[in-house]
C-alpha cells in the first residue's frame, strides 16, 4: 500500500516543525562569547533527520525555519531557511548512507563518529559555503562579511549538533533498546 509519503512521516514533519519553532524561540543557550547562542533547535533537527530520514529532515528544517522567521520577525530570510532544509536533508541522507539505524537502539562509538563526520561536512558546506553564497546572490552583501558570518554560524552549529545532538541521539537510542534481561535486586 504505497501512496507516497507515509502518514507518520507527514505528522513527523508537522510536529517536528512545531518543536523546531518552540526550541528556536525559547531554548537558545547563551554562550561565553557575547551575542552568540547555542541554537539547540539544530540538534533537534539532526535527531529528527536521523530518526525519520532525509525527506522529513529537510522539510522540518525548511518549514520549521520559515515559520520561526515568520512568527518572530514577520519576514523570512530565505537564504538561511533553505540551508536549514539542506542541513536536515543531508544529515538524514548521510545517516542512511552510513547505515545508522537508530531504531535498533544501537548508537555506539562507530555511529557517533560517522554521525559527526556527516554533520560537520554538511554544516560546513551549508552554513559556511552555501548560505554566504546565497546572501551574495540575493542581497549582494560584501563577501568578507557574509563569509565571516557563515563560518561563525557553521562553527557554532557544528559544536551544538556535535555535543547536544550526539547526546540526544544516544539518549534516544537507549529508549529504543530492548531490555529483557532485567532482574529485580
Amino acid at each position: 500500500m504505497n501512496r507516497g509519503l507515509a502518514i507518520r512521516t507527514v505528522v513527523a514533519i508537522g510536529i517536528g516543525a512545531a518543536v523546531y519553532v518552540i526550541l528556536g524561540r525559547f531554548a537558545a543557550i547563551p554562550t561565553p562569547v557575547p551575542n552568540t547562542s547555542i541554537h539547540t533547535t539544530f540538534a533537534f533537527l539532526a535527531l529528527m533527520s536521523v530518526i525519520f530520514g532525509p525527506l522529513a529532515g529537510g522539510l522540518i528544517g525548511l518549514i520549521g525555519h520559515a515559520l520561526l522567521d515568520a512568527i518572530s520577525y514577520g519576514s523570512i530570510w530565505w537564504s538561511w531557511v533553505v540551508i536549514s532544509g539542506f542541513v536536515g536533508l543531508f544529515i538524514g541522507y548521510g545517516a542512511k548512507k552510513f547505515n545508522i539505524d537508530i531504531e535498533s537502539g544501537v548508537f555506539g562509538k562507530k555511529e557517533i563518529i560517522s554521525f559527526n563526520l556527516i554533520q560537520i561536512v554538511v554544516q560546513l558546506v551549508g552554513w559556511g559555503l552555501l548560505a554566504p553564497t546565497l546572501d551574495i546572490l540575493i542581497y549582494v552583501e560584501p563577501n568578507l562579511k557574509v563569509f565571516v558570518q557563515g563560518i561563525t554560524a557553521a562553527a557554532s552549529n557544528i559544536v551544538t549538533v556535535g555535543v547536544i545532538g550526539t547526546l540526544l541521539l544516544v539518549a534516544y537510542a537507549k529508549t529504543r533498546s530492548q531490555s529483557d534481561s532485567l532482574t529485580k535486586e
Binding site: 529508549t175 531490555s179 532485567l182 529485580k184 535486586e185
Partner: peptide
C-alpha cells in the same frame, strides 16, 4: 529499590 538499576523506559 529492587528496580534501582533499571532503565526508566522498562
Amino acid at each position: 529499590y529492587p528496580f534501582r538499576n533499571w532503565p526508566i523506559s522498562a
